Lab assay of single mutants.
Amino acid sequence: MTTFKLIINGKTLKGEITIEAVDAAEKEKIFKQYANDNGIDGEWTYDDATKTFTVTE
């Protein structure tokens, strides 16, 4: 398992979430669903070196 981080830079929601997953593709799906469930629609980036997804509205 690898630890992945999501950084949220939303208009109404900001924060960080850290979760373990098998791979980045699995985690991306979970993070995007979390963002969608919380009304966050923005630009996504991924840094493989730090295993960090960022979504910015």
Rank of each mutant, 00 (worst) to 15 (best):
M1D: 06
M1F: 13
M1P: 08
M1V: 10
M1E: 07
M1I: 12
M1K: 11
T2C: 15
T2P: 05
T2W: 14
T2Q: 08
T3A: 05
T3S: 10
T3D: 04
T3W: 04
T3N: 05
T3G: 04
T3Q: 07
F4M: 04
F4H: 06
F4C: 14
F4D: 01
K5P: 03
L6H: 00
L6A: 01
L6W: 09
L6F: 13
L6C: 14
I7F: 05
I7C: 10
I7N: 01
I7M: 03
I8P: 00
I8H: 02
I8K: 00
N9C: 15
N9A: 04
N9P: 02
N9W: 11
N9H: 05
N9K: 07
N9V: 14
G10S: 08
G10A: 04
G10Y: 13
K11H: 14
K11S: 14
T12A: 09
T12M: 09
T12P: 08
L13R: 03
L13P: 03
L13Y: 15
L13E: 13
L13F: 15
K14S: 09
K14Q: 12
K14R: 10
G15E: 13
G15Q: 13
G15L: 15
G15N: 09
G15V: 15
G15F: 15
E16D: 04
E16R: 04
E16W: 11
E16Y: 09
E16I: 14
E16F: 11
I17L: 09
I17E: 01
I17S: 01
I17D: 00
T18E: 06
I19T: 02
I19L: 09
I19C: 15
E20G: 07
E20H: 11
E20I: 14
E20T: 12
E20F: 13
A21D: 04
A21F: 12
A21K: 05
A21I: 14
A21E: 04
V22L: 11
V22K: 10
V22G: 07
V22N: 10
D23V: 06
D23K: 05
D23S: 08
D23P: 06
D23Y: 07
D23F: 06
D23N: 10
D23E: 06
D23Q: 07
A24C: 15
A24N: 14
A24E: 12
A24H: 12
A24L: 13
A24Y: 11
A24F: 11
A24K: 08
A25R: 06
A25H: 07
A25F: 12
E26Q: 07
E26F: 08
E26D: 14
E26I: 07
K27E: 09
K27Q: 15
K27V: 15
K27N: 13
K27R: 14
K27F: 15
K27D: 03
K27I: 15
K27H: 13
K27T: 15
K27S: 15
E28G: 07
E28R: 06
E28Y: 13
E28I: 14
E28N: 04
E28L: 15
K29V: 10
K29W: 13
K29H: 09
K29T: 09
I30Y: 10
I30N: 02
I30R: 01
I30A: 05
I30P: 00
F31D: 01
F31H: 01
F31S: 00
F31R: 00
F31V: 12
F31I: 11
F31T: 01
F31K: 00
K32M: 12
Q33M: 08
Q33K: 14
Y34H: 02
Y34A: 03
Y34P: 01
Y34E: 02
Y34S: 01
A35T: 06
A35C: 14
A35M: 14
A35N: 03
A35P: 01
A35R: 03
A35F: 13
A35S: 04
N36G: 07
N36V: 11
N36D: 10
N36I: 13
N36S: 12
D37T: 09
D37V: 07
N38L: 15
N38I: 14
N38D: 01
N38P: 03
N38Q: 10
G39S: 05
G39W: 08
G39N: 08
G39P: 02
I40D: 01
I40T: 03
I40V: 07
I40F: 10
I40W: 09
D41N: 12
D41V: 12
D41E: 11
D41R: 07
G42C: 13
G42F: 08
G42T: 00
G42R: 04
G42N: 01
G42H: 04
E43I: 11
E43S: 07
E43Q: 07
E43P: 03
W44N: 01
W44H: 00
W44K: 00
W44A: 01
W44I: 04
W44T: 00
W44F: 04
W44V: 03
Y46A: 01
Y46C: 10
Y46M: 00
Y46K: 00
D47V: 01
D47W: 02
D47N: 06
D47I: 03
D47P: 00
D48F: 04
D48E: 08
D48Q: 06
D48S: 06
D48P: 08
A49G: 05
A49D: 10
A49L: 12
A49M: 08
T50R: 04
T50N: 06
T50D: 01
T50Y: 02
T50P: 00
K51C: 12
K51W: 09
K51A: 06
K51G: 06
K51R: 11
T52H: 05
T52N: 01
F53V: 06
F53N: 02
F53K: 00
F53P: 03
F53R: 00
F53E: 01
F53M: 04
T54D: 02
T54N: 05
T54R: 04
T54H: 09
V55M: 07
V55D: 02
V55G: 02
V55L: 13
V55S: 02
V55N: 03
V55C: 09
V55Q: 04
T56K: 07
T56F: 11
T56A: 05
T56L: 08
T56S: 08
T56R: 03
T56H: 09
T56G: 05
T56W: 11
E57T: 11
E57K: 04
E57I: 14
E57W: 14
